[in-house]
């Protein structure tokens, strides 16, 4: 499974979106579910899925799906 697919799944689970929801263009506060606490849920879900831990600065910068994917790639997370 690719990193992108796993990340999209994490977004859908954390933000309680349908399985077919396109999250690839999603940005913070684009939708009601991605508020400040939704953000914490999302961060926890991504950390759990990829067994990583983001710093507070990274959490602040994780403002879109694309930013999250870039962060994971910078950390060397690769397709399994």
């Amino acid at each position: 499974m690719t990193v992108a697919n796993r990340l999209q799944s994490a977004f859908r689970v954390a933000l309680e979106l349908p399985e077919d929801a396109d999250v690839t263009e999603l940005k913070y506060r684009d939708i009601e579910q991605w508020d400040s606490i939704g953000h914490m849920t999302l961060v926890a879900e991504i950390e759990n899925e990829f067994d990583v831990m983001f710093s507070t600065e990274e959490v602040v910068n994780l403002s879109s799906y694309t930013a999250a994917l870039d962060m994971l790639r910078e950390r060397g997370v690769s397709d399994s």
Binding site: A14, I37, M40, T41, V43, A44, E45, N48, T56, V59
Partner: peptide, 10 residues
């Protein structure tokens, strides 16, 4: 508290 909220959010 912030770290705990993150841990509890799920």
């Amino acid at each position: 508290s912030q770290a705990a909220v993150r841990a509890m959010a799920r």
